[in-house]
């Protein structure tokens, strides 16, 4: 019998980036990856920019320096915001992925309670801490800029 053609139904990038009827940990997963990639991109740019010193180019000093342009300030603020989320969510992930805060195996009785419920208070606590850190940092950032 000839092989019938199939349809490749792999979701690909939309599978992790896309929305749907998902839970909050799924959105945290998406945001963790996006912020991680953002921070990585910043890190690479940071290395490039500071390396320019080797050629005597300083983009960040002096009156009206290139990196003082508003677009870079906004970018810096985005990096800070990404860091606030990534760091606190990362602490949760380290704990969870080491098997803490997910609970022991239990008898599944309907309606099922999964490890997601067990780690949820930790998740929410970390998000509150991230929000506080973000608020304090934002104040400092924009206030400092206005000074």
């Amino acid at each position: 019998m000839p092989e019938l053609k199939r349809h490749d139904n792999r979701l690909g990038i939309w599978g992790w980036l896309g929305g749907g009827r998902w839970g909050m940990e799924r959105y945290a997963y998406i945001l963790h990856r996006v912020t991680g990639l953002g921070i990585l991109a910043y890190f690479l740019m940071h290395i490039c920019v500071t390396s320019l010193r080797a050629w005597g180019i300083y983009l960040w000093t002096g009156e009206g320096a290139f990196l003082d342009a508003p677009v870079f300030k906004v970018g810096e603020f985005l990096v800070f915001s990404a860091f606030a989320f990534h760091a606190f969510n990362g602490v949760r992930l380290i704990l969870v992925e080491l098997g803490f805060a997910v609970g022991k195996p239990i008898e599944p009785v309907y309606p099922y309670k999964s490890s997601l419920h067990v780690q949820r208070p930790l998740f929410l606590a970390m998000m509150v801490l991230a929000a506080v850190f973000f608020a304090a940092g934002s104040y400092e950032f924009w206030h400092g800029l206005a000074r």
Binding site: W16, W22, G23, E25, R26, A28, Y29, H32, R33, L93, V96, E97, V102, G103, P105, P108, V109, Y110, Y112, K113, S114, S115, L116
Partner: peptide, 20 residues
Amino acid sequence: CHYAGECSRVCPKGVDPAKA
């Protein structure tokens, strides 16, 4: 795996693969 937890949320038998 980075604990998106979706596997445990959809599991119809309460197996909780993310926990495992």
